[in-house]
Computed example of a mutant assay.
Amino acid sequence: MDLTNKIAIVAGSGNPEGIGFATAKTYVEHGATVMMIDISAEVHELAESLGDKARAFTGDVSRFRDMELIIEKIIADYGRIDIVVNNAAVNIPGDSVETPMERWELHYNVNVKSQFIMSKLVIPQMRKQGYGSIVNMASANSFVAEKQLYAYVGTKGAVRQQTMADALDNAPYGIRINCIGPGLVNTGFNDEHHDKVDGGIDEVMKHINDIHPTGKPVTAQEVANMALFLASDLSTGCIGGYYAVDGGFAIK
């Protein structure tokens, strides 16, 4: 799957163990020039580790002006945007009673609003090009609820629906928009939930057979592999789809 000469953006790529960094690294390995965006300054060091085909930007994906400045800079420097991966997210446990309003709003700002902002900023350029692929990170929780994940589950359901709506509007312009639904990926992202509900990640791993029929967690690289496929020209028939990379979590 060749991404040579493609300009890609991976938002939420500042965790060295995470899906975003694995995706950025995979894209670089397949020829793309990758713009890595994260709220954490660590993204700069991670971009440096990938060589001169990666570049880092710090910003808050939920703030329109932050993203506007970054996207304007990318277009000015490269003249195009071919691929976008919206991976930034938060996951703070709680039910509808105990979740404070500001925490609920944070989930929707980072997990949902950020994807709207990105579409608003990059799709005009993709329409000019007549080409583009956007990959939104949904979740197995787009379909399946879990205890103490009220805000997170809601946002991931919204991501799936928002992806379909955006894909429908933009398919005539040569733009493909899809989403990926990971299962349990042991990157530290879910640790607060596991600590509260399950007794910690070590306890979760003891019972992984009850979560994934495969009997093992999904790896960040497995999710990145799907993101590579959806970014590539091998997926030209994929429009508005949800692609599970969840070890069978949602079918059990």
Results as ranks from 00 to 15, higher is better:
89 A>E: 04
113 K>S: 07
237 G>C: 11
129 Q>L: 10
36 M>G: 05
33 T>R: 10
79 G>Q: 11
203 E>C: 06
71 I>F: 08
238 C>T: 15
20 G>A: 02
1 M>Y: 09
97 V>S: 13
107 H>S: 11
185 V>G: 02
92 I>G: 06
149 L>M: 11
134 I>T: 03
121 L>P: 03
114 S>M: 01
133 S>C: 09
209 N>H: 15
33 T>N: 11
139 S>Q: 06
155 T>S: 07
24 A>D: 01
163 T>V: 04
68 E>C: 13
51 G>K: 06
234 L>I: 15
115 Q>D: 02
141 N>W: 08
237 G>N: 13
194 H>A: 15
100 P>M: 10
78 Y>L: 05
214 T>H: 10
21 F>H: 03
229 F>I: 08
152 Y>T: 09
96 S>E: 15
252 K>Q: 15
190 N>D: 10
98 E>I: 13
112 V>S: 07
65 R>C: 10
66 D>H: 04
203 E>R: 13
66 D>N: 09
211 I>F: 15
170 N>Y: 11
121 L>M: 01
231 A>I: 05
66 D>F: 06
152 Y>I: 12
109 N>Y: 14
98 E>Q: 12
30 H>P: 08
83 I>F: 00
189 F>V: 03
78 Y>W: 10
208 I>N: 08
179 C>P: 09
35 M>R: 04
124 P>D: 06
1 M>H: 07
2 D>M: 04
198 D>L: 15
140 A>R: 05
150 Y>W: 14
68 E>G: 13
188 G>A: 10
98 E>W: 13
5 N>E: 13
237 G>D: 10
144 V>W: 03
90 V>I: 13
206 K>A: 10
77 D>Q: 12
31 G>T: 04
69 L>N: 15
200 G>V: 03
129 Q>S: 07
